[in-house]
């Protein structure tokens, strides 16, 4: 039985630096004082431009990489307690499995390493291979699989231990429409079961559609956390303020006319859409996100 904790994971002032160059003199700060708290049962999106630190955050969370400083808590237990990893499933952004294994052997290997019993692994493997539509290739070597099939297998692998927290790093990258639909269905199932999901993706439409909460990373720092609708509201408001601030005073007065708030001296402005919104086919969320990406780092 899952031991439910209020938070799926927490990051408290986490920093990760990499050293490179001669004698490690060059320091790259991949994560810079990141604090996040993700509630159990929520689907949490993590977005940001390339090299923002998204994958590093995932790797720190899953003990693949060591944090330089800060505190990480997974499923209510400290980072050093690896037993919590038995309750987490993970899909890597560029998954490579040993080509000599068959899906059945792979799921047995990865399931057993997650602490799942032999009989449970066998039962789960059959179910999952059916679920990801690979049952007919259960005995074929993975080396013969297409990229999409490997991604689907990666998903099955992540679910073999029936995880409380599912971490997906670019799960729909390079997938065709039907495979994407499968990912969406699985995410919907997780949500209905009250399980937590961390979704890392560049697909802003996925975030908007699937996530309860979102964090935006830029240059290793969290620049926004909240719901997708909060992000749209915030960016709309900011853009309007920016428009007001940069407009000539005479123009503002003229725009406001006599309807302004005479007492405060500020004109009444109807804030409908930011100037960067409504580009070709973009939703308000995508537009707001793009604006956040393009802002100069703090």
């Amino acid at each position: 039985m899952p031991r439910l904790t209020p938070h799926a994971f927490e990051l408290d002032h986490v920093t990760k630096t990499y050293r490179s160059g001669w004698l490690g003199r060059r320091v790259l700060r991949a994560l810079d004082d990141v604090s996040l708290r993700v509630s159990t049962g929520r689907t949490f999106g993590l977005v940001g431009p390339n090299r923002a630190g998204k994958t590093t955050l995932v790797k720190v969370l899953l003990s693949i990489t060591h944090p330089t400083s800060g505190r990480v808590v997974r499923l209510g237990r400290p980072w050093a307690d690896r037993s919590t990893l038995a309750r987490i499933g993970y899909v890597h952004e560029r998954q490579a499995f040993p080509g000599y294994l068959t899906p059945v052997q792979l799921l047995e290997l990865y399931g057993r390493l997650s602490g799942v019993g032999r009989l449970d692994v066998r039962r789960r493997s059959q179910e999952l291979l059916e679920r990801v539509e690979l049952a007919d290739r259960a005995a074929s070597p993975i080396a013969t699989f297409s990229k999409g099939m490997v991604q689907r297998l990666a998903l099955a692998q992540a679910l073999v231990n029936e995880p409380e927290l599912l971490v997906l790093d670019e799960p729909t990258e390079g997938l065709d429409l039907s495979a994407r639909r499968l990912v969406y269905e699985i995410l919907a199932e997780r949500r209905s079961k009250g399980r937590s999901v961390l979704l890392v993706t560049h697909q802003l439409s996925d975030i908007e559609r699937l996530c309860d909460d979102v964090a935006v990373l830029r240059a290793g720092r969290v620049v926004f956390t909240g719901s997708p609708s909060m992000l749209v509201d915030r960016e709309t408001s900011r853009a309007a303020k920016c428009q007001v601030a940069t407009a000539p005073v005479a123009q503002l007065v003229a725009t406001a006319g006599s309807a302004g708030d005479a007492a405060s001296g500020w004109p009444d402005l109807e804030l409908t859409a930011p100037p960067h919104a409504a580009a070709d086919g973009q939703s308000a969320f995508e537009s707001a996100m793009q604006h956040l990406y393009e802002e100069a780092p703090a």
């Binding site: 993970y90 490579a96 040993p98 990865y110 390493l113």
Partner: peptide
């Protein structure tokens, strides 16, 4: 080296096995 390749070892390292 094949076993320790970054793309294949990452998922194994995210397992509870020490």
């Amino acid at each position: 080296p094949g076993f320790l390749d970054r793309q294949s070892i990452s998922v194994l390292l995210a397992k509870p096995a020490p």
